[in-house]
Design a protein around this nucleic acid. Structure first.
Length: 674
DNA sequence: GTTCGTTGCCTTTTT
DNA sequence: GGCAACGAAC
């Protein structure tokens, strides 16, 4: 396989001083899009530079002396907004620190931190992540004493997704169950009751979950007209990336920020809508014109990213979908030296072997490792490749399912901080207490009851010496020494006039109790200890404890965990392993898409539902994966899956292969050399 | 009555 | 490899 790769060193286009919006815009439309006043909707295909169009508009606005503080930039990850602003700075030397940019969640968090008291919360509210939600729900199910012996009651995470879907699509619980969970219909009353308990518990414990951040911000702005006008006057220009993945709440929030006077620009691609399970509604794009009749709608069908061979395949693959805005993407690049490869392998081991060996070859040919990605449908599918890369000493970075801050030991440490900051945070208190030997759920609950019985537990200010109260509590004998230690540790987290610095808090917690706990609970103690060091390092950048805690909850892996962000460890030359969802918006020269067996992608569950909408979403996901590649694309699947617990099973290639002509790909036969 | 260790079952995607 | 259910130990 002869290849001609003459790779130039990576350079950032457009870093020259002086700004010419047309300079690197191959398409006249861009200039029009970025500079036109009023509303705009850009429907554009993959790799057409949607994000670039947004970036240019920000630069343009700043160049027109629009103050940065009157721009609101909503993106899918915080990292995306950071990168866009960096790019703006390259284009135009203006200070963008006043600009509000980030995810819906982080923007709503900022607003709520200022005004949460209007909703019955305090500004120190805690943010519940999925894990916190689950343990809260588990408690609520237990205390509701539902008779589940004979009939199966939905598990906490199922309940939570019912609630979330109901909120995000503005559909009643009843209708959601009717449509998606008919087998739980008999539990309708209990489910509705739990929903009510869940909501009131969050208020009582001063906690918000991810949905609340959006919903409550929306509620706040709807109910308080002065506040609404304040923000409407502030954000004169609203820009939204990945518009196809907004849900009803986000859509309404945008419309509310824009009001009657402000200017809105959104970009999106219906073919890349992959979050409907989270309530995302493509309808938001389709109804855009109805809500903004004077908006200009642009369609960009030029792809600047991929070789024509890859694009042709992608076009063909997505054509099988019925519900879509038809687009025919044209490649602006020249033909490359290979057409996408399809590689059947005997089993997952062989697949991993092939992928890693090919990666090694590419690196030897001079491709930078960070220009290579391995993508898959589900995180667990990356196992074998991870092991193989490790054994061959090829550096890789993985966007795991668990975010850095979601790992148990990180959450343990922050539980202390969260409780001290928000004294009503039951979940954090119980997590903290439960770490002590001899204290399980029951004793933790008793301790919590003793705590809430004290009036001091409801007050916000001032910080107090926790030991004064907590030392009196009755704890199991086995735990008493540890309990004392814990109380004094809590005392160290506050100062006379406020909270200790975040990094100091972590130091106190590890020194006071957590090191001991970690040593006896985890076999990979050293590794976790290092993570905590990272956390402490990261905390140094923060003085405000609420800001630090918000960041922990709202930062996703895609935003880069602090590990990856540390300069000396920044893995410039690592291969990327990522789920397709997390690869959204990114691109690499070489992409491997693995586990393309029917039942693995599309996943079995969706095949079994025989729901065509879901299958189409799965196909869009496939499309997203294909269009990440710039130059080379490898599609692999194992024909045998020995790891299945039903024993070895034969696997057929993904049904997505049936959607395109086999001329568009070349099949590679891999023979084991020895 | 509660905690803690062991076995067996199942594995989507994320702010 | 993680979590629920179960049964043994405290």
């Amino acid at each position: 396989m002869a290849r001609e790769y003459k790779l130039k060193p990576k350079q950032n286009a457009g870093t020259q001083s002086g700004i010419d919006y047309r300079a690197e815009l191959n398409d006249q439309q861009y200039a029009a899009v970025t500079s036109r006043p009023g509303h705009a909707l850009v429907i554009a295909g993959a790799g057409s530079g949607k994000t670039r169009a947004l970036t240019y508009r920000v630069a343009y606005l700043l160049d027109q002396e629009v103050p940065a503080k009157s721009i609101l930039l909503l993106t899918f990850t915080n990292k995306a907004s950071r990168e866009m602003l960096e790019r703006v700075k390259e284009l135009i030397p203006q200070d963008t620190s006043d600009l509000w940019g980030g995810t819906f969640h982080s923007i709503c968090n900022r607003i709520l931190r200022r005004h949460a008291d209007e909703l019955g919360f305090t500004r120190n509210f805690s943010i519940l992540d999925t894990d916190d939600q689950k343990s809260l729900m588990k408690q609520l199910i237990a205390s509701a004493k539902i008779e589940t012996k004979n009939r199966r009651f939905p598990k906490p995470d199922v309940l939570l997704s019912i609630f979330s879907l109901s909120e995000n699509t503005k559909t009643s619980i009843e209708d959601i169950i009717d449509a998606n969970y008919p087998y739980f219909e008999e539990w309708l009353d209990e489910i509705i009751l739990l929903k009510r308990n869940y909501t009131s518990k969050k208020l009582e414990t001063n906690c918000m979950d991810f949905d609340d951040l959006l919903l409550l911000a929306l509620k706040l702005l709807k109910q308080d007209e002065d506040l609404r006008q304040l923000y409407q006057r502030k954000f004169r220009y609203v820009l939204v990336d990945e518009y196809q993945d907004t849900n009803a709440t986000q859509c309404e929030l945008i419309d509310l920020f824009v009001g009657k006077k402000n200017s809105l620009m959104v970009v999106g691609d219906d073919a890349q809508s992959i979050y409907s399970w989270r309530g995302a509604d493509m309808g938001n794009i389709l109804t855009f014109h109805g809500r903004y009749p004077d908006a200009c709608i642009y369609k960009i069908e030029t792809n600047y990213r991929s070789r024509p061979e890859i694009l042709e395949l992608s076009n063909a693959a997505i054509k099988a979908n019925v519900s879509q805005i038809p687009k025919e993407l044209r490649a602006s690049r020249e033909k490359g030296s290979m057409i996408p490869a399809v590689i059947p392998l005997s089993d997952p081991r062989a697949q991993a072997d092939f992928v890693t060996q090919r990666i090694q070859d590419l690196i030897d040919e001079g491709i930078e490792p960070n220009e290579i990605a391995v993508l898959y449908r589900a995180h667990y599918q990356s196992m074998e490749v991870q092991m193989e890369l490790t054994s061959r000493d090829i550096p890789f970075q993985i966007t795991s399912g668990l975010r850095f801050f979601e790992q148990a030991h990180i959450k343990d440490v922050s539980a202390f901080i969260r409780f001290v900051v928000n004294r009503r945070d039951e979940i954090s208190f119980k997590r903290m207490a439960g770490m002590l030997p001899g204290i399980g759920p029951k004793s933790a609950d008793n301790l919590w009851r003793a705590w809430v019985a004290l009036p001091i537990s409801k007050q916000e200010e001032p910080p107090l010496a926790f030991s004064e109260y907590l030392l009196e509590f009755k704890v199991p004998k086995k735990a008493s020494a540890h309990w004392e230690q814990l109380c004094y540790t809590l005392d160290e987290l506050v100062t006379r006039d406020g909270f200790q610095m975040p990094s100091e808090m972590i130091l106190s917690i590890t020194g006071g109790v957590y090191d001991d706990y970690m040593r006896e609970s985890f076999d990979n103690f050293e590794q976790r200890k290092q993570d905590i060091q990272q956390l402490m390092q990261y905390a140094r950048g923060y003085t405000d404890i609420n800001e630090f805690l918000s960041q922990l909850s709202l930062m996703s892996t895609a935003d880069g965990d602090p590990k990856a962000n540390r300069k000396e460890e920044k893995n410039e030359d690592a291969v990327t392993l990522s789920s397709i969802h997390q690869a959204k918006g990114l691109e690499w020269k070489v992409v491997f898409l693995i586990w393309l067996a029917d039942g693995m992608f599309p996943i079995k569950k969706i095949i079994e539902t025989e729901n065509n909408d879901q299958l189409e979403e799965e196909r869009r996901l496939f499309y997203v994966a294909l269009t990440r590649a710039k130059d080379e694309l490898y599609l692999t699947y194992p024909t045998l899956n020995p790891r299945s617990y039903t024993g070895e099973i034969l696997q057929t290639p993904s049904r997505f292969f049936d959607d395109f002509s086999q001329d568009l790909v070349e099949e590679w036969q891999v023979h084991s050399g020895w």
